[in-house]
């Protein structure tokens, strides 16, 4: 099967799973923004997603997307290190026009995943997962809250300066990851040429900035509200 065997096939899997995750990010962002303006609306979405088997199935698909993206990043990185050979250059200079992020995608991805674990433990584990194993309430900072009251979770965590700071760092890593990942995915699929290459890079930067600013906006907004 060429998708699994060939270098371009494997890269295609990376880029399609990447694009899929980008779409999810957009969805997640719109949800978050809704929370800033109406906590009820947000909770409504949460309760809808928490109790719905379609949503669980969706979550599994999403998880598969993550797992594929991560597994292939590991696979490709290992292969690439092997292709690079055992001897390393003594002098390394990053040429002009080469983005720093493009050469550090794996590290950036790793940072994103680490924060993801934190994020899951704070939200998903206590919301959807708790629901799935039959709990309808969890204890959050001494108070008992419904697993479907998403806004309570947000308010709780984003009132803590350390967690806010960590999330902001996460967005920065995500920003770097996205600025390269977005256009790189398009390039790998082959929807690019000399002209569109430049355009996609600009679009990548704008998109990554908007997404990360959006998340940061929600985080900061809730922190400010908590003061």
């Amino acid at each position: 099967m060429w998708l699994l065997n060939s270098s371009v096939g494997k890269k295609l899997i990376m880029s399609i799973s990447g694009v899929f995750l980008i779409l999810f990010l957009l969805f997640h962002l719109s949800m978050n923004i809704a929370a800033v303006f109406s906590e009820e609306a947000y909770n409504l979405i949460c309760s809808f997603l928490g109790s719905n088997w379609y949503a669980v199935a969706g979550t599994l698909v999403l998880a598969a997307g993550f797992v594929i993206h991560i597994l292939y990043s590991i696979l490709l990185t290992l292969q690439n290190r092997k292709a690079r050979g055992n001897s390393r250059y003594a002098v390394n200079v990053r040429p002009k026009n080469v983005e720093w992020s493009s050469q550090n995608m794996f590290v950036l991805g790793l940072i994103v995943v680490c924060f993801l674990v934190l994020h899951f433990s704070q939200f998903w584990y206590k919301m959807m997962f708790a629901e799935l194993i039959g709990h309808h309430t969890v204890v959050l900072g001494g108070a008992t809250v419904s697993t479907q009251a998403g806004a309570e979770f947000i308010k709780y965590y984003f009132s803590q300066p350390l967690i806010v700071a960590l999330y902001l760092v996460w967005y920065v890593a995500l920003w770097f990851h996205l600025t390269h990942g977005f256009w790189s995915a398009i390039q790998t699929i082959g929807w690019s040429n000399a002209l569109w290459l430049k355009r996609w890079q600009v679009i990548s930067n704008i998109f990554a900035t908007l997404v990360c600013l959006g998340f940061a906006f929600v985080t900061i907004a809730f922190f400010l509200k908590s003061l």
């Binding site: 270098s7 371009v8 080469v98």
Partner: peptide, 20 residues
């Protein structure tokens, strides 16, 4: 592409170092 893979060259991650 098949030959390139067989010979053990790596996968392109679009860093653009080659072009530079």
């Amino acid at each position: 592409i098949a030959k390139m893979d067989e010979l053990g060259f790596g996968n392109c991650t679009n860093t653009r170092a080659c072009e530079a």
